[in-house]
Design a protein around this nucleic acid. Sequence first.
DNA 1: ATTGCACGCCTTTTT
DNA 2: GGCGTGCAAT
Length: 776
Amino acid sequence: MSTYLEQLNEPQRAAVLQKDGPMIIIAGAGSGKTRVLTYKIAYLMEQGVDPFNILSLTFTNKAAREMKDRIGKVVGYSEAKNLWMGTFHSVFARILRSEADRLGYPSNFTIYDTQDSVRLITAIIKEMNLDKDRYKPKQILNRISSFKNSLITVRAYFNNSDLQQADLEASRPKTGDIYKEYVDRCFKSGAMDFDDLLLRTNELLARFPDVLAKYQDRFRYILVDEYQDTNHSQYLIVRALADRFQNICVVGDDSQSIYGFRGANIQNILNFQKDYPDVKTFKLEQNYRSTSNIVRAANSVIDKNKTKLDKEIWTANDAGDSVKIMRTISDGEEGRFVAQSIWENQMNHQLTSDQFAVLYRTNAQSRAIEDALRKKDIKYKIYGGISFYQRKEIKDLLSYLRILINPNDEEALKRIINYPARGIGATTIDKLLIAANHYNKSMFDIIKNINTIDVNINAGTKTKLQNFVNMIQRFQIEAQTKNAFEIADLVVKQTQLVKDLQKDGTPEGVNKVENVQELLNGIKDFITDKIETGEDASLTSFLEDVALATDFDSDKKDEEPRVSLMTIHLSKGLEFPYVYIVGLEENLFPSAMSMNTRSELEEERRLFYVALTRAEKAAYLTYAQTRYRWGKLTDGEPSRFLEEIDERYVEYITPKTPEPSMNRFLDASLFEEDTPKKIRFQKPIQKKRKEFLAKKEKPTMISPKSNMKKLSELSSKMNLFDGEITVDNIVEHNRFGTGKVIAIEGKGPNKKAEIEFSTVGKKKLLLQFAKLKVIG
DNA sequence: ATTGCACGCCTTTTT
DNA sequence: GGCGTGCAAT
């Protein structure tokens, strides 16, 4: 018997050794799920199953790579390489590419991201002369997305009077027409959105029995991780593919189902037994990850949910510290508490930053945490949020590359046809769109034949369009002999894209140039990487990677350790020794949008459960009594989840604030700066829960006068207050070096200084953001 | 056709 | 507090 089997506990081993037939593994948080999946695949291969016949669907591409790596260690890398592993989206994008012609798509179809989809829908709403306040593009996209994930095609929609009635009652009778136009336009553009990757796969398997048979035969063993988060569309794909051999193994935890909003159907896991009556069920209930205080605290909360499978998570680990609950006065103080606490834990226990994670409900919360960490000089990395690839300058360059591959890509074309400005304005684009719709051709086709088609565009503009097409076609020819990096580099040079970014001279512009450079480097790395591993290094493959990459996939190693900042959703599947969960306030977590129904609230509770069970050694839960939201100060109540934790496992602590903060400028951080080493919280105090949660600490008011005095004293000491900077000052900027102030303009937050830097020349900087130090 | 500014909406969460 | 859109000015 292989040695790795000895490393498993009883239920884990049983799950690994169950080779054939349908099975479900209910895997509690931290119960060694990945280990089981890894060994299970290794075991299958040892039993003579060809890796070509194994399909493993994971939640992130990174998880797939790591698992492949671990399997490689057991059975050999050359064998493991042949496994099909990846996310639903990336695996089926690959299959769709090779079968695209069946569906009338080009094999190099574009993948539209959410931004592309929203822009297209916005355009359609405008073209249809509909009120964009009534038809909110994002809302419409969500609705279309839920149609697609339930396999409701345009035709199905128009055959379903209930759906149409619902849209009519919502005063959006044209929803179906928008849906139809959106689908048509995507098709004409040779583009699929995220949901299409699943919907079209279903279409492919349903319409072409030979294709279905081919993949059924190919994927004799199918494993699906995070099964609780699959939606109906994914569920149908899996069921179709597994239908012939029925060797289907799904792994999941109903308590960690947190993607209901994007169509995940918890029933998929709850009803698995109904679909496969002879299913074997395994339960992994021993948690190896966390202290028993954390496990018990988490259990006590999730027990409040009615909808759940029967299981009891337990651990043999030590009790460990209590879960700490911390009340702070503001979101600013919350951030400083987190930073201070991380710093102390690092000092006291000799820990590196990568042992810490800060988790929050919404991306917007990261700001306060970032500010505080930066002030303490603690390195961090943000996952999610606005991704690198969403930035305007990056999307613009990528759009050029997309056009080379697929000239029909309408969204890419609209982005770059007049960027950098070449005198092709909105009016011209509108005319082109109308012609494209009229002749049922793509916009690019119209432009290509601009001289033979009857459009009301003047000769000068026609020449400009001609030049544009010629340029694109030149790139296309070059692309046949050059690699992705050389092409991207050529595009940047020929279009003068960087020059355009440079000419505004602002720090933002500099940053954008750096981003473009980073993208070029990224393409270079991609190519080297793929050539080394013998994989597809084409531009198409790069663009697909970009479209489907998650933040974790680009995770660079050999960097210095950093604190991880991310939403709770993104933290699923990860673990950290020290976890801070911030913003535990009513209307934020649970979210105000999710408190209307029991099932929404239960999903929020599962989300909290996921957050808490990320922690190995210690968990800190914080909430703020006031918080800036939409730029306004708002009051908050402690989250109900705090009260739901069994009191035996928690402890309340209060930050010691040296001076109550009066406003943003007179923030406590100003006072802290020179005493960072002092331990800043009081010893943990156990208070009565109700009393603690109910107590409101009102900041003591300082009279505005003394306030201002204190402020200016401080600022003169610390060079942080913009009032100090005047003409002729010599200042220091952390990127541009030293310079002389030439002029000051604007006031309040818009106050700018014009500075002559010795390195980069004249710059206008917003004092609010440019952390300038007066040095003379 | 481009630029600058005011306004409004925004924030759940992601492939 | 931030971004995109729409409108007015040039």
